[in-house]
Structures are given as structure tokens and as C-alpha cells.
């Protein structure tokens, strides 16, 4: 995420922005990833897995 497709150049502030952006994105993403998965979704995987064999 640290290359600028339009200009082909990076500036020092781009790196600061990228680090900050990655941190915020990861925080938001991991917040969902770390949630407990609903049992019904896990049950669904097992049920379909059994039916497919």
C-alpha cells in the first residue's frame, strides 16, 4: 500500500499515512475476526460437510 500508482513516487508523509492506515484497517478487521463465530455457522459447515461426505 506504499506505492502511488499515479505518480510512481512516495514521499515521507506517505509512509506515515500508510503506517497509520494499515494500523487502523487491521484494528477494524481484527475486531471482527476476534469475535466469537456464531455456532450456527460452524454447525452449517459440519452439516454440509457430512452431507457431501
Amino acid at each position: 500500500m506504499d506505492d502511488d500508482a499515479d505518480s510512481g513516487k512516495t514521499r515521507p508523509t506517505d509512509h506515515v499515512m500508510d503506517r497509520w492506515l494499515r494500523r487502523q484497517l487491521k484494528l477494524a478487521y481484527d475486531e471482527v475476526v476476534d469475535e466469537p463465530v456464531p455456532e450456527e455457522l460452524l454447525d452449517l459447515v459440519e452439516e454440509i460437510g457430512r452431507r457431501i461426505g
Binding site: 475476526v33 476476534d34 469475535e35 463465530v37 459447515v45 460437510g49
Partner: peptide, 16 residues
Amino acid sequence: DQDLIACVPHLRAFAR
């Protein structure tokens, strides 16, 4: 199945 279950949290995040 276990590989798929490991993907579920990531699927939930992307879907969210």
C-alpha cells in the same frame, strides 16, 4: 472442513 472453519472469521470480517 477445519480449513474452512479457520476461514470463517475472515469471511465474516470481509462481509462486514
